[in-house]
């Protein structure tokens, strides 16, 4: 009984930590975005030699189209996971994909509006993901607390039965 109680308490602590994962992913994305707005050229200057080694960047329209398709798919995936009650995915993977878009737009010498589009897409996807994480973990925590309450009841009544039971 004590082992089960300890296991449930550990599970609750893990779920509480997991519910904050979405917020950590959002904080990381904000950090990456601030670095991009500060100036990728200043942080990672690319010499003409490196640019010629990398070759021509993909066309801006193609990167924009890829961003729209990625945002659409990511949102649909998160919403379908929410509907089916599946556990939320890691928000950190999205931070990686979005950083990739920042890099592509930077290489294609895109205007600042394109960077704003990545920021808006990232905010939408990560807010949804964090919300899913939070609600999923809140429900799981409430289930675990119910288990704890049942255990407590069983311990109390079981104890009373032993104390006042027939000899």
């Amino acid at each position: 009984m004590t082992t089960l109680r300890a296991q449930t308490e550990t599970k609750i602590r893990q779920l509480e930590a997991r519910s904050l994962r979405g917020l950590w992913a959002m904080a990381l994305f904000l950090l990456v975005s601030s670095a991009v707005y500060y100036g990728l050229e200043r942080l990672f200057p690319l010499s003409p030699e490196i640019r010629s080694f990398l070759g021509p960047a993909p066309p801006l329209n193609l990167i924009s189209l890829a961003l729209v398709i990625y945002s659409f798919s990511a949102i649909v995936l998160i919403l379908s996971r929410m509907t089916m009650g599946h556990p939320p995915g890691s928000g950190f993977a999205h931070v990686g994909y979005l950083t990739g878009f920042y890099i592509f737009f930077h290489l294609a010498r895109a205007s600042v509006e394109n960077l704003w589009a990545v920021l808006a897409a990232g905010a939408t996807i990560l807010v949804l993901s964090a919300y899913h994480q939070r609600t999923f973990c809140a429900e799981a925590i409430s289930e675990e607390r119910e288990t704890l309450a049942r255990l407590e009841l069983r311990e109390r009544f079981g104890g009373e039965k032993r104390e006042g039971g027939p000899e």
Binding site: S64, L67, V68, I75, A110, N114, A120, L128
Partner: peptide, 14 residues
Amino acid sequence: TGFALVCCILLYAG
């Protein structure tokens, strides 16, 4: 709103 915003910004940039 988020998806409409992304599309609007990309449309504006285009």
